[in-house]
């Protein structure tokens, strides 16, 4: 017997969505794999396949409100469709196994299953048909487009493309900020005790620039990759600290002022660029070979700028 699902998103569901979006208990936000009946499906009803990450399942069942259908949930270890497809858990083997396990053939009289398009990087459609007899139909990227898709069974070009709009980017910010909150506070405390309030403030601004400002202005920084965008943003962020450090001790000699201010110009851009280089993993368009090239091209510069800045900073700290 299939399990029952509804399209109703309760307050409790919404609270779990909130927790997932800030990265709390995300690993445990799972649904049981297997076959679900939404509404009152019969032998002719559509079958939709999804991952067992709670957010994926809830998005799908909410988008299918008013439809009588089956939802086949694969065991993706609580990971969303696209990431699980990349890892292979939303994969050919698991789908073949799950179709057999739930005895899908007994529940429906047709042989079509509808998969989210982004599941395709884990599923070989022709292999599924060869092993199970079921024809894989790739639906739209987003569950929200399903009702339009079901009217014609054709996905428009827009439905077939991933986007990375400002909203898409902002949704990702809280997870990153929550991840970095404790390390940032520890770093700030260390810097405050060893170097003073300005370096501690700088470390906070570097983290916020990389994790919050960068995703917002990503598309407006006029360079072609993440590292150079990060360097540019880092220089802009560094200038105020450079000027503050220059004027912090009016009695110091000019070379002492310069020595305590220059580390900001070296360390800030290198760290912001390092954070933004790592942002590649959050985007839906960077490739493995492209990112590898970018690491080879810019990581050494980040490393040496950081080392030079740290050494100059330490030396002038003791001269003071």
């Amino acid at each position: 017997m299939p399990m029952t699902a509804t399209s109703n998103i309760t307050f409790g569901d919404k609270f779990q969505h909130f927790l997932a979006r800030v990265g709390l208990r995300r690993n445990r936000f799972r649904v049981q794999p297997g076959l679900y009946a939404l509404g009152k499906p019969d032998k002719e009803s559509n079958v939709f396949v999804t991952a067992n990450y709670g957010l994926s399942f809830n998005k799908l069942r909410a988008a299918l409100a008013g439809t009588d259908c089956y939802i086949l949930v694969l065991d993706t270890k609580g990971i969303n469709v696209w990431c699980a497809a990349g890892k292979g858990t939303f994969g050919t083997e698991e789908l073949i196994h799950r179709i057999d396990d739930v005895r899908l053939k007994k529940h429906i009289s047709h042989n079509v299953i509808i998969l989210p398009q982004l599941g395709a990087s884990g599923i070989a459609a022709h292999e599924i048909e060869k092993h199970t007899g079921f024809k894989v139909e790739y639906g739209p990227v987003r569950a929200e487009d399903l009702s339009a898709y079901l009217r014609t069974r054709e996905a428009t070009t827009e439905m077939r493309r991933v986007t990375f709009s400002l909203t898409d980017r902002l949704i990702l910010v809280p997870v990153e900020l929550f991840h970095m909150a404790v390390p940032t506070l520890i770093l700030m405390a260390i810097l405050y005790f060893f170097s003073g309030s300005l370096p501690a403030l700088a470390s906070l601004v570097i983290i916020l620039a990389g994790l919050l400002i960068f995703p917002v202005i990503l598309t407006w920084i006029p360079t072609p990759n993440f590292s150079t965008k990060g360097f540019l943003l880092g220089v802009v962020v560094a200038v105020p600290f450079f000027l503050l450090a220059l004027s912090s001790d009016p009695l110091a000699a000019w070379w002492q002022k310069l020595g305590s201010a220059i580390p900001y110009l070296l360390i800030t851009p290198s760290l912001v660029a390092f954070i933004t280089l790592n942002y590649t993993g959050a985007t839906p368009f960077t490739s493995k070979s492209g990112v590898a090239r970018e690491i080879y091209a810019y990581f050494p510069l980040m490393f040496w700028m950081f080392c030079a800045g740290a050494i100059i900073g330490i030396i002038f700290r003791f001269i003071h």
Binding site: G86, A120, S121, G122, I123, A124, A125, H126, F226, L277, N278, T280, G281, T283, F285, T286, S287, K288, S289, G290, V291, A292, E294, I295, F299
Partner: peptide, 21 residues
């Protein structure tokens, strides 16, 4: 993966600098 006649080849993987480092 979905080409039934293997007309396409690509070395798939993640475009994530953290994972690569």
């Amino acid at each position: 993966l979905n080409c039934p006649v293997n007309a396409i080849t690509v070395d798939p993987g993640t475009g994530c600098a953290t994972a690569q480092m």
